[in-house]
Simulated scan of single mutants.
Amino acid sequence: MKKHVSLPRHSVSVSGIVQRPDGCILAIKRADDGRFVPPGGVLELDETPYEGVVREVLKETGVKVAPERLAGAYKSMKLGVVSLAILCRPVDGRPQTSDEAVSVAWLRPAEVIEAMPEARAIRVTDALSEGGLFVRAHDGTSLL
């Protein structure tokens, strides 16, 4: 009889790349590690990626969004988390802090590159680029 071996499992998350008409991008400063990142989180089993990004961005920032398109897939090789970056536009609400976000800000794309770790900033630059769907791997901070 073969012994059953439990393999590690992946987690699937979404990152909302929310862009205002003036080009600014919605960012949160995480409560747990103090880093600026796009809002997002783990998908629930019963929701689509677009439903999940709407829920997560609203929960973390108070901003309701309309998803526009999938921009890329990003895997943390350290944690086994695959995050789908989805370009969105804001439709309602004002930015506010939450349990997960000690600060919420609209950043210019150049500020995003300075404020966010490379593995998060690339999601924004990819979403703002023409060129289709990007697939990248990272270690949680830097691209691999």
Rank of each mutant, 00 (worst) to 15 (best):
F36S: 11
F36T: 09
F36L: 13
F36P: 00
V37L: 14
V37Q: 14
V37Y: 13
V37N: 11
V37I: 15
P38Y: 03
P38A: 15
P38K: 01
P38F: 09
P38M: 14
P39F: 05
P39T: 07
G40S: 07
G40W: 04
G40K: 04
G40E: 01
G40P: 03
V42W: 05
L43W: 02
L43V: 00
L43F: 00
E44R: 14
E44K: 13
E44F: 09
E44V: 01
L45K: 07
L45I: 05
D46T: 14
D46P: 00
D46V: 10
D46F: 11
D46G: 11
D46Y: 11
E47Q: 13
E47P: 01
E47F: 03
E47A: 06
E47L: 06
E47Y: 00
E47N: 00
E47G: 01
T48H: 02
T48I: 02
T48D: 01
T48V: 02
T48E: 02
P49F: 12
P49V: 14
Y50Q: 10
Y50G: 04
Y50H: 08
Y50W: 09
E51V: 06
E51W: 04
E51L: 09
E51H: 03
E51C: 02
E51I: 06
G52E: 04
G52D: 06
G52T: 06
G52P: 02
G52I: 05
V53D: 03
V53F: 01
V54Y: 01
V54H: 01
E56Q: 15
E56T: 11
E56R: 15
E56H: 13
V57K: 03
V57F: 03
L58H: 09
L58N: 05
L58Q: 10
K59A: 14
K59S: 12
K59M: 08
K59D: 14
K59H: 12
K59T: 09
E60K: 15
E60G: 06
E60H: 08
E60W: 07
E60L: 12
T61L: 07
T61I: 07
G62L: 09
G62I: 08
V63G: 04
V63E: 04
V63W: 02
K64P: 00
K64G: 00
K64S: 11
K64M: 07
K64A: 12
V65P: 00
V65T: 05
V65W: 03
V65C: 04
V65E: 03
V65I: 11
A66I: 03
A66N: 06
A66G: 00
A66S: 10
A66V: 08
A66M: 09
P67C: 12
P67V: 14
P67N: 13
P67I: 14
P67M: 13
P67L: 13
E68M: 11
R69S: 10
R69D: 01
R69E: 08
L70Q: 02
A71Y: 10
A71S: 15
A71P: 09
A71V: 11
G72H: 09
A73D: 02
A73T: 05
Y74Q: 05
Y74R: 07
Y74C: 05
Y74H: 11
K75N: 07
K75P: 00
K75I: 13
K75R: 14
K75Q: 10
S76Y: 06
S76I: 07
